[in-house]
Nucleic acid binder design. Structure first.
Lengths: 154, 154
DNA sequence: GATATTACTTAGCAAGGCTAACTAATCACA
DNA sequence: TGTGATTAGTTAGCCTTGCTAAGTAATATC
């Protein structure tokens, strides 16, 4: 069947980059359900990896509202992935700590995602990998690289 | 504050690629709410762009179950983004067509996403863009390139 | 010390995912 | 030919995760 002429024949770079990123992540997250921790929890844990955060900081980092994070953290506490600690100096403030159990789940989830991508890259030559690496470096610059990479809901 | 030693100091390529893809898409989808069509609908429309699909085909393409797609398509019909047409030869089969209105919403959403990425790329030199393009080509090969790129829920 | 602000929680709603169970149409074949 | 199996989609009902609005408790301000 002939394709409708709604799109240009040769997609431009931005479009192809967009599409490649979508398919890469769709591939990567296929393993997420195997961790026993939801994607939202994995994402929050990846923020907590660098140390405890207040509930508000965590919500901002995850780009969700406070009530959403409040509920998520309560669930994480229930399942033993995180702890709430009331701040010593301001009793309104909660510091959320990842537990060892939570961090193990995070590492398991991340490792599975990364392994999938590594398998894709493993099929390429050294120079092709170098090309990808240079492009990634450029993307990091464009996007404002983060020190601790992140495993969010997407 | 010192970072915990849960991660290696220098993230490997797969990890960085993963992270870059996440941040790229997070950036790209910031404009999605402005289209007036939900992300799930935009994604379905992008599949329908290449022509009508049965409900089952659409569900498979979107990697959701039939009931989920059934509900989504009913909603799209209600809002005028799609039409259901009963197959001439098999009355069990529904062919889902994107409407002109739906396609306009899709193009609007895609254009906004792509424009955001283009703005990022616009700051780079021609040779840097060429590097990104080579890397994208490699990724397309690794992931099994799709003819019609796609604007899915992520 | 009264009032405002801040940090979080509770309540209730919507979207979008799922499974189980249903209906209707078609197929297969004795 | 007609009956049972299969297929396509829908309905019902649940869960998670987003949201806003409104409430509570602690702290800051004047």
């Amino acid at each position: 069947m002939r394709r409708r002429a709604t799109r240009t024949a040769r997609p431009e770079l931005a479009d192809r980059l967009h599409s490649a990123a979508i398919h890469l992540l769709r591939r990567a997250r296929r393993t997420d359900p195997l961790t026993g921790v939801s994607a939202a929890q994995l994402s929050a844990l990846s923020v907590l990896m660098s140390g405890p955060k207040t509930l508000g900081e965590l919500a901002a980092a995850e780009q969700v509202r406070a009530p959403t994070m409040s509920r998520l953290v309560s669930e994480m506490e229930r399942t033993g992935a995180a702890r709430k600690v009331v701040d010593r100096h301001d009793a309104r403030v909660l510091r959320i700590h990842a537990t060892a159990k939570g961090l193990r789940a995070l590492e398991r989830g991340r490792a599975m995602r990364i392994t999938g991508i590594e398998r894709l890259l493993a099929g390429r030559s050294a120079s092709e990998r170098a090309t990808v690496e240079r492009a990634v470096t450029l993307l990091e610059e464009m996007l404002g690289a983060r020190p601790a990479p992140h495993v969010p809901s997407p």
